[in-house]
């Protein structure tokens, strides 16, 4: 009986197994690539507007498309503590510290992203605050 059920859902087990494996692979890649976050990179409207080192505590007001967000960097973690966007999803996204993690505020078109060492050499950046 039990074998019959297993046989009937063998394709399903196969499919769900593949889906979970791919998801786990994506997660592991994200964690693996997350080491060595060094800078907090702020993008407004798709353009890098400022870069700050993750190791220095500071509070920055970001002027976005339709309002402002308050970015706080402390203890090598970055987060949005206040924002005047309607959904406040950026505040709820919490603290980020690993390379590739980001906080996105869609209403204000702001992306705060953790980047690694290589970001420093990128010539597109207007300001690097040391």
């Amino acid at each position: 009986m039990k074998k019959g059920i297993l046989k009937r859902v063998k394709y399903d087990i196969f499919l769900v197994g593949i889906l979970i494996t791919v998801g786990a692979a994506v997660l592991l890649t994200a964690v693996f690539n997350g080491q060595g976050g060094e800078y907090v990179c702020i993008k407004t409207d798709g353009e890098v507007s400022a870069v700050y080192p993750l190791t220095e505590n500071r509070r920055v007001v970001i002027n976005g498309a339709n309002g402002t967000n308050l970015l706080v960097i402390e203890n090598c973690q970055a987060y949005i503590s206040e924002a005047d966007c309607p959904d406040k999803l950026c505040v709820r996204q919490g603290k980020i510290s690993m390379k590739g993690q980001s906080v996105i505020c869609l209403p204000h078109r702001i992306v705060v992203e953790i980047t690694g060492q290589e970001q420093k050499d990128n010539s597109d950046i207007d300001v690097i605050v040391k």
């Binding site: 993008k43 590739g100 993690q101 078109r109 992306v111």
Partner: peptide
């Protein structure tokens, strides 16, 4: 959003 680091 022009973000390529979408892995997370």
């Amino acid at each position: 959003t022009d973000t390529t680091s979408i892995l997370w």
